[in-house]
Simulated assay, not measured.
Amino acid sequence: MNGQLELPCNCSSLPVELTGNLNTLLQWTQQKKTGLMVYAMKLGDLRQLHLTPVPAAQIKLINQK
């Protein structure tokens, strides 16, 4: 909502790296690192979803407790 995304976890206990690149996320997974990649979704036709990776520079983690 309003460009903000509530995470399903308390990320303050985990070091979270942000990426807009799927290959980077897969490399981090292999290295047992915690990463986050966000996709924007165009919802014109739910039978044909269009997912676009959001660049990490446009993502800001908020409310980390």
Rank of each mutant, 00 (worst) to 15 (best):
M1F: 12
M1Y: 08
M1G: 11
N2K: 15
N2L: 15
N2C: 14
N2G: 13
N2P: 03
Q4M: 14
Q4G: 02
L5C: 04
L5H: 05
L5N: 01
L5G: 01
E6A: 12
L7R: 05
L7V: 07
L7T: 09
P8Y: 11
P8L: 02
P8E: 02
C9T: 05
C9I: 03
C11L: 12
C11P: 02
S12A: 14
S12E: 08
S12H: 06
S12I: 00
S13Q: 12
S13P: 00
S13G: 12
L14M: 11
L14H: 05
P15C: 05
P15S: 06
P15F: 04
P15K: 05
V16E: 07
V16P: 05
E17K: 10
T19L: 02
G20W: 14
G20H: 08
G20V: 07
N21H: 15
L22H: 04
N23C: 11
N23I: 02
N23W: 10
N23S: 14
T24S: 15
L25G: 12
L26N: 14
L26E: 11
L26A: 11
Q27Y: 12
Q27P: 00
Q27C: 10
W28D: 04
T29R: 14
T29M: 06
T29Y: 12
T29A: 12
T29N: 13
Q30L: 13
Q30N: 11
Q31Y: 13
Q31N: 14
Q31T: 00
Q31R: 15
K32L: 07
K32R: 13
K33W: 02
K33Y: 08
K33H: 10
T34D: 15
T34P: 10
G35V: 01
G35R: 04
L36P: 03
L36W: 13
M37Q: 02
M37C: 07
M37A: 02
M37W: 11
V38P: 06
V38D: 09
V38N: 09
Y39F: 04
Y39S: 02
A40Q: 01
A40N: 01
M41Y: 07
M41A: 10
M41H: 03
K42A: 10
K42W: 01
L43C: 14
G44A: 09
G44W: 08
G44E: 14
G44L: 13
G44P: 10
D45R: 07
L46M: 15
R47W: 06
Q48I: 03
Q48D: 13
L49Y: 06
L49F: 12
H50M: 08
H50V: 09
L51V: 00
L51T: 00
L51H: 10
T52C: 13
T52D: 14
T52Y: 11
P53Q: 03
P53N: 00
V54G: 04
V54I: 07
P55H: 08
P55N: 01
P55Y: 07
P55A: 09
P55W: 09
A56E: 04
A56L: 04
A56P: 01
A56N: 00
A57I: 00
A57M: 06
A57C: 01
I59F: 14
I59S: 12
K60I: 02
K60H: 06
K60A: 05
L61F: 03
L61I: 02
I62E: 14
N63M: 08
N63T: 00
N63P: 00
Q64M: 07
Q64A: 03
K65Y: 08
K65M: 04
